[in-house]
């Protein structure tokens, strides 16, 4: 059975601002699904529609078998959500916050107390449980937010960029817990992220979104294999001067399927990458183009993203990095 379905789902804020422009999704129950894309690509708007916070302009959406526009109340009872900003009340303690959450989800009072304690233990916040949330670090807040999303044993959990801004250790903690819940209890996770590594390591399946549309869909392995080539990256010595010339000469490389420029580098998709490196060096030497480094990698999700959109997915900027 599908846990999440979307069919031609759209959210147009104005005629020009088409945050989500007709997406189709089908996430099976028990899957850990990642929604990948740069800031502004429409990931959060999609989550807000699927979690009933935002009404779609048109199209159909379904969560746990329920129509998002017709049964929002029932959907809210069945889903857990941690939004992009850890939505917490700084003047409550961690325990009070979880207990209020439990009461609003209509759990019996004794279960509320037990479950809050158990979750505080799981997210390693039991020692800080009776401190005001305002004294928590960013990582602690994220963990508490995750615990709040899980307070009522939801069947489907939406996590909107759950690890953005976290240090690597906190990020690992959250990943481990998400994976454990998914494997042990079969909870379906719909995770948006701009961290490629996160999607690559966690997701069974993922969709790449850009400018309101899904541009690729599949498992991380399938998507990377779809590139069908190795990736040779050349760091140019003076990229602003030599980049266009480098692209021109490297197009003659035997086996190259595509040559693209990024900010300070040239990316070559080529069959038999290890053999091609020597030829790349030779071609650049002959053309008298100075370079710092030539490296060979297997395709990453970033390469998939570049191939589908013409942009790098960057983690620190609001806009995708332009690729020539």
């Amino acid at each position: 059975m599908s846990a999440i379905v979307a069919s031609d789902l759209k959210k147009h804020f104005t005629e020009d601002i088409r945050a989500v422009d007709g997406i189709d999704l089908d996430v099976p129950e028990g899957q850990l699904f990642a929604f990948l894309g740069p800031n502004g690509s429409g990931k959060t708007t999609t989550v807000r529609m699927l979690t009933t916070l935002l009404r779609p302009t048109s199209g159909y959406g379904e969560v746990d078998g329920l129509d998002i526009t017709r049964a929002p109340g029932e959907i809210r009872q069945r889903i857990g959500v941690a939004l992009q900003e850890a939505g917490l009340d700084d003047n409550q303690t961690g325990r009070e916050l979880l207990e209020l959450q439990g009461h609003l989800y209509r759990l019996p009072a004794d279960e509320v107390r037990k479950r809050a304690r158990r979750l505080l233990e799981v997210v390693d916040l039991l020692d800080a449980a009776d401190r005001n949330v305002k004294s928590y670090s960013g990582g602690m807040k994220r963990r508490l937010d995750l615990a709040a999303a899980l307070m009522h044993n939801p069947r489907v959990v939406f996590l909107d960029e759950p690890t953005t801004g976290l240090d690597p250790i906190s990020r690992e903690t959250i990943w481990a817990y998400v994976r454990e819940l998914n494997e042990r209890e079969g909870v379906t996770f719909f995770l948006t992220t701009q961290y490629l590594e996160e999607a690559d390591r966690l997701a069974h399946d993922l969709a790449i979104m850009n400018l309101g549309k899904i541009v690729a869909r599949g498992s991380p392995q399938e998507l990377k294999a779809s590139i069908g080539t190795d990736v040779v990256t050349v760091q140019l010595d003076e990229p602003h001067v030599t980049r266009d010339r480098a692209i021109e000469v490297l197009r003659a490389l035997d086996g190259a399927t595509e040559v693209r420029a990024a900010t300070n580098e040239v990316v070559i998709y080529v069959k038999g990458g290890s053999r091609a490196i020597a030829n790349v060096v030779r071609i650049l030497d002959e053309a008298q183009i100075a370079f710092d480094e030539v490296s060979l990698t297997h395709p990453t999700l970033d390469d998939v993203f570049i191939q589908k959109t013409g942009h790098h997915i960057t983690e620190d900027s609001d806009q995708p990095e332009e690729v020539a």
């Binding site: 979690t51 889903i79 939505g87 009340d89 609003l104 989800y105």
Partner: peptide, 16 residues
């Protein structure tokens, strides 16, 4: 303050 912190959304997401 609740709206700015995102806590109002959290409350809107409950069945209350």
């Amino acid at each position: 303050t609740d709206i700015e912190r995102g806590y109002f959304d959290k409350l809107l997401l409950t069945p209350a």
